[in-house]
Amino acid sequence: MTGYPDHHGGGEATGHGPVARFAWPVVIACLMLAASGAANAACAVARHGAVMVRHGTRGAARRPPVMSRVPPHRSQHGLASWYGTGRQLGHATASGETFDPDALTAAHTQLPLGTRLLVHSRRTGRSVVVRVNDRGPFRGHRILDLSPEAARQLGILGTGTAPVDIEPADVAADEEVASAPR
């Protein structure tokens, strides 16, 4: 720079300055990525959720694999909880329907949406048939999240969690069943 107002130092006005010097390699790298398909692969990984970050956690958690069908004799034993206080009211579930606390529904991490499950509480002896319409639970070692109505019918609404046995139910699609203790 010479100090004269009409002189430009470094060639910025002519397109040969520091900004232009780094722009061409970036453009060339982008074109090479687009031609090789690596950009599409990276976008596909992000789009299909190879890693899912949950709200309220600091790290990333792997999304569990979803089953395409339920084997007829598959049963599971573990801890169930219920959900649906105020945050879920009016929000969409994983199946796309609006969360209804009065419906006999549940959330499971792997079972196909729409699967009907017979849930038996080992503590109260009551059973209820629920339909999986959401994903979860993502807390602790729980295997199932129940709607408030399903938890009430099982008798676990006051305790929050309870040990349960679950298995696929053979029930007609329009029928929701609750039973007394066995």
Rank of each mutant, 00 (worst) to 15 (best):
G86V: 10
F22W: 13
V129E: 13
G9A: 14
A60V: 12
L79Y: 11
P25R: 01
G125Y: 08
P148T: 06
R62F: 10
D170W: 08
A80K: 01
A107Y: 00
G78R: 06
R87Y: 12
V27D: 11
L144E: 03
A23R: 10
T14Y: 06
H73A: 07
R58K: 14
V164D: 00
A180H: 11
G56I: 07
S121V: 02
E12W: 13
P137L: 03
G140Y: 08
T115W: 07
A34E: 14
S147V: 06
T2A: 05
P137S: 05
G140V: 05
Y83F: 14
H91T: 13
R126Y: 12
A178R: 13
V128N: 02
E167W: 02
T14F: 05
P72V: 06
M52K: 08
M67R: 11
E97S: 13
W24I: 11
H108K: 03
A172D: 10
T85K: 15
H91Y: 09
P168K: 06
W82K: 08
A44T: 13
A172I: 04
V177E: 04
D165T: 08
H48R: 07
G136W: 07
A92C: 03
A178N: 07
A39P: 10
H7G: 05
G59Y: 10
L104Y: 01
S147M: 07
P72R: 07
A50T: 13
S147P: 08
R126W: 08
V19P: 05
V128Q: 01
A20N: 04
L144C: 05
A162T: 15
R63L: 15
H16M: 09
T115S: 11
H108F: 04
D102P: 11
T161F: 00
V129R: 02
R123Q: 15
T109K: 10
S68H: 12
A35I: 01
V26R: 10
V27N: 06
H120P: 00
P168Q: 13
Q88A: 15
D174Q: 15
P148W: 06
A162Q: 08
R58H: 08
V27A: 15
V128Y: 02
V27W: 12
S95P: 11
A20E: 15
